[in-house]
Each structure stands twice: as C-alpha cells, then as structure tokens.
Design a protein around this nucleic acid. Sequence first.
DNA 1: ATATTATTTGAACATTTATTCAAATGTTCA
DNA 2: TGAACATTTGAATAAATGTTCAAATAATAT
Lengths: 117, 117
Amino acid sequence: MSKEDVCQIKIINKKKVDKVKKQMKKETTYQEMAETFKATSDKTRLKILYALSKEELCVCDLSAIVDMSISLVSHQLRILRDKKLVKYRKEGKSVYYSLDDDYVVQLIKMAYDHVTE
Amino acid sequence: MSKEDVCQIKIINKKKVDKVKKQMKKETTYQEMAETFKATSDKTRLKILYALSKEELCVCDLSAIVDMSISLVSHQLRILRDKKLVKYRKEGKSVYYSLDDDYVVQLIKMAYDHVTE
DNA sequence: ATATTATTTGAACATTTATTCAAATGTTCA
DNA sequence: TGAACATTTGAATAAATGTTCAAATAATAT
C-alpha cells in the first residue's frame, strides 16, 4: 500500500483552505514560537520571571522568593537563559539574574490580564 | 531530623527579598497563567490558532491546512476549547471552529515579532 | 593549602504530553 | 432503516518535562 492510499485528507471548502494555506508561515516559525511559549508555560519559571521583573536577583534570593530549592531554580534559570529570556552577571560568589528583554514583561502582563479578566 | 534542620534557604539581600516577596501574586495566578501559555506552546496548536485567526474553519479543512491527521487536530482543538481559546458551532455534519478571544491573536503576534526580531 | 559559600550539573525518577490507531458518536441523505 | 461522512473519544505508546538528590565547579576567606 503506497503512502497516497492511506492519505485521509478531505477538503470541504477548497477556496478557503487554499487562501489560508497561502498565508501560513513556514514550519520553523511555529517551532520557534512554540519554544518561546514553552519557556513561560511553567509555574515556577513564571514566578521567577515575575520576580525578576521587579528586581535583579541572585539565585539564592530567587530561591527564597519562589520557595523552591536552589537546584531547581538554577535548572529553570538555565532554560530561561537558553531561550534568551534572562541574562546574568557574576559578582563574587553570587550570580545575579535579570530579564533580558522587555518582551517577557509584556507577555506576562497580557497573560495576567487575561487570567484575571 | 526536623523539617527546619534540612531547610536550605539562605538569603543574601533580605531587604530586596522581602520587597519582591510582597509583590508576588498568589500561587493560583501563576498556575493559570502557565496553563494559558501551555496551550500556545505547541507547534501544531500554534498552526491551528494562526489558521483560525485568518478564517473560521471546520476540522477537516484545518487538518488539510496544518497537514496533520483529523484525529490529532480534534485532540488539539479539545485542549484549545478547554482553555477557552477557541469556540465552535455545528453546521450539518461539520463543526466550525474560530478564535474565542482577540487575546490569542495579540499573543501570537507578539511571539511572531519576537521570533522574527 | 583547606574550608566555606553560591551556583551549576548530571543522573534518576515520576509525571505530563503529543501522537497514532481503532472504535464510537452524531448527522445527513438515500 | 442503513450507508456515508465528519468529528470525537479512549487506550496505548513514545518522547519530553519538572523535580530531587548528590556530586562537581567556582569564588572567596581563613
């Protein structure tokens, strides 16, 4: 059985489908957008980002604020770093994190407004 | 060993910590925000949402546009319905979906702008 | 050097998630 | 009624994710 035989695609309104298909972005765009959203789709990371929107903070202070282990906070910060949502600077033994981009603040504000109606 | 003994929380800048702690939202707020973001943190769902931002579409047309099985699209639509991001109306044998809230359009636009710089 | 503190890392685990398949609804039309 | 179509659902699986623990770095102070 060839691949074509198992294709189940049936189109009801071909005109609409073609029109929308033309407007779709390229595959990687959705992938990248999804990854950005993934970074903000965790409770702990949101707390971290929200705290950082108020103050530059070191890992152990962040840990006290969000009430989670230092290890966990560090792991989550790595994810946020990888996605370029936070930046950091070292000062003595401490590492101070802050938001890398105002975009996050806006995003969080939008979600907050939506959630609180 | 009591719970206090294993507590590892050490605070470096108590003033900052207290100030930020006071500004933190309540636990459920982050949870709800995370859930909203989770809905938009998947490539397939983003494609669906983007397509729906252009046109009201039935499941099989959506399936053709995003090039995924009808079953998968239906599963993802359920998630989007549960999160109140899409609404639907029945017409004959078909079910037509559309965006429930302009908020999604804004959110996607923001992420798109961020991704494309 | 050793000890102490702050952070990062890696492995392990449990949980969640996306996807597929097959079967079950629900709707229209002969 | 039954056949055909559009969609939903549930179970099963594989992959991704959040969290914990213990060990490894890295920086400072004794």
